[in-house]
Design a protein around this nucleic acid. Structure first.
Lengths: 157, 157
DNA sequence: TATTGTTATACTCTATAACTATA
DNA sequence: TATAGTTATAGAGTATAACAATA
């Protein structure tokens, strides 16, 4: 058994545990000064990253959840004027979800809180380490998602 | 806005999204040949890492959840002979939770699946990059958890 | 007939509150 | 009075199934 690998996996698990706890989310929305639940934040920040209108199905795939989940939260966020739904001109079955100015603002605030946490945590790091982390973590995210898609597509035996 | 930092955070978010989806867990337990839900796996692997009996409260703190959650899953796992509860000789309010051989086996199988995923994803990497990832991710987990503990302890204003 | 999205429903995970027993 | 754990309850988050409208 590879000791180095095991440290990698264990560090990753610790990070996921920390990020996923409810108190962490509470802190994000409090610091951001918004009133949103976790799926709300995920959807808004997904759209902020996309920087253009997205279908419900695309959001669901991006967040890796089922579409009814997205539908419901989109409906609630629309009522709060944080996003708008416009019919896709090319396919009248589909809707394009777009952030309103208020939605952009809310998404940016949430995004900024977590980014600042990382920035603070990395504040004491040498520049070279920060650059390496950025490169390696990006590569890991790519490789792991590609690998898991392959694994998952095989389906149960 | 720091481009490098933003890439780090975004890569991290992608990783968390992938790891958290239900299908990923289904795949883990299927590949491991066990019949456990997500909290079960978390508790068993926590105990495997600890390598010694732990109190309910310690498990809850380690997983960063509330203790009633741990209590319930421990009770179910005990009935399935995957762990045992013995009274703490020094404090009769407390229980020490320990893995049985079957529990160790189940925990090891689950752990091995995810470790193998990482190993496969990193298979094409240069040795130096793998070593750097291990070092930097470990450091990040430490620094971020220390930083967030500080932030969280301040409490709402 | 396949696909996009919605509605309705149910399940999983986790938190909060109230309680018991020991310290 | 404070702490460890449990029981009971409620809520958040997400999946599945059945359906509508369009392609």
């Amino acid at each position: 058994m590879d000791e180095e690998l095991s440290r990698t996996v264990s560090a990753f698990r610790r990070l996921v545990t920390t990020i996923n706890r409810a108190k962490t989310h509470d802190r994000i929305v409090e610091a951001a000064g918004v009133h949103l639940d976790r799926p709300d934040v995920q959807i808004l920040t997904y759209l902020l990253d996309a920087a253009q209108p997205r279908r419900v199905g695309a959001i669901a795939e991006g967040l890796q959840v089922e579409s009814p989940h997205v539908t419901r939260h989109v409906a609630l966020l629309e009522r709060r004027d944080l996003l708008v739904r416009v019919q896709d001109p090319d396919d009248r079955r589909a809707w394009l979800i777009d952030l309103t100015p208020a939605g952009i603002d809310a998404a940016r605030r949430c995004r900024e809180v977590t980014t600042t946490w990382f920035a603070d945590a990395l504040a004491g790091w040498p520049d070279a380490d920060r650059a390496e982390l950025s490169r390696l973590l990006g590569q890991l995210a790519d490789d792991l998602s590609v690998h898991l898609q392959g694994v998952l597509k095989c389906g149960p035996s």
